[in-house]
Design a binder for these strands. Structure first.
Lengths: 144, 144
DNA sequence: ATACGAGTGGGAGAAAGTGGGAATACACAA
DNA sequence: TTGTGTATTCCCACTTTCTCCCACTCGTAT
């Protein structure tokens, strides 16, 4: 399970090194896709295979399902982790996620999210400010 | 499985080089057909054979099934990949897809779609804006 | 103080993408 | 049939980008 938050650099060659805490669980082959709220999702290859299988069940005849699978599959990229534990995000994904130095890796259970740091901070503040909502959600999962 | 998004050029001789990530899986012989939403579908020859077989099972009595298979079969074109990994799209398909430089190859699971870049961007933006739909679909495939 | 691991930077070689030339095939007119 | 012009096919070559590997720095632990 991925937890924690790490800030990294995008170097001149557009490489980003993975947080070492995630390296073992991610393995040598990872998949990056478009995520929600302009972040990217990062999965171990094995997790992606499960997701891809689920997605391929969607009905091509439905316009929104078609759009969704186009969005996810075309947005996905299988990436080899280099010998230094870095990944190279394709241009179109880097643009989508607005990834400029610094970027944030956020572990979210089964997946890792990659964020533009500024967007991440803004997003976090917005969530933090919604104390009532947080309290309620905590309640629903049994913490009071 | 085809994933990812690649922008390529249509050269003076109307050739388009295939993204190298797709070359191995596509093989030396591919099939291009009319796709949905004004893009073209590109299949490895082997995949096409399976599709053709499935389509021939469709009920001829149903007008929409008839229309669909006419649409797919009449538009289909078998194309050899040249030694540099490029293909030559027939005029009528290039017109249908409005393919002018630059064009986008989008891997969508078992097919590749070829888009006019401008149309693709417009389409993508429309999908991106449907965040609710995306979140819902993500939920159905187990991402929350 | 030294060793180690994590994160970052850079250089050389390989590959991908694209443009263009030469050879071949084709169509049509003389 | 032969010649001419056009189109198509097959290679070769150039440029840019990517990939792989090595080196350096900084902080932490021994």
């Amino acid at each position: 399970m991925f937890i924690g938050e790490y800030t990294h650099t995008v170097d001149e060659k557009k490489r980003i090194s993975l947080p070492s805490k995630f390296k073992a669980e991610l393995g040598k082959k990872v998949v990056v896709t478009r995520g929600l709220d302009n972040c990217l999702f990062l999965f171990p290859h094995k997790t992606w295979q499960v997701i891809a299988k689920e997605m391929s069940k969607l009905d091509v005849k439905q316009a929104d399902a078609r759009g969704f699978s186009r969005f996810m599959f075309s947005g996905a990229s299988e990436i080899d982790v280099d010998s230094m534990g870095r990944i190279l995000i394709p241009d179109y994904l880097r643009e989508f996620g607005d990834l400029k130095t610094p970027v944030v890796f956020a572990g979210v259970s089964d997946r890792i999210e990659i964020w533009n740091e500024r967007r991440w901070d803004t997003y976090k503040k917005r969530i933090e400010s919604q104390a009532d909502m947080m309290a309620e959600k905590l309640g629903t999962i049994g913490i009071r």
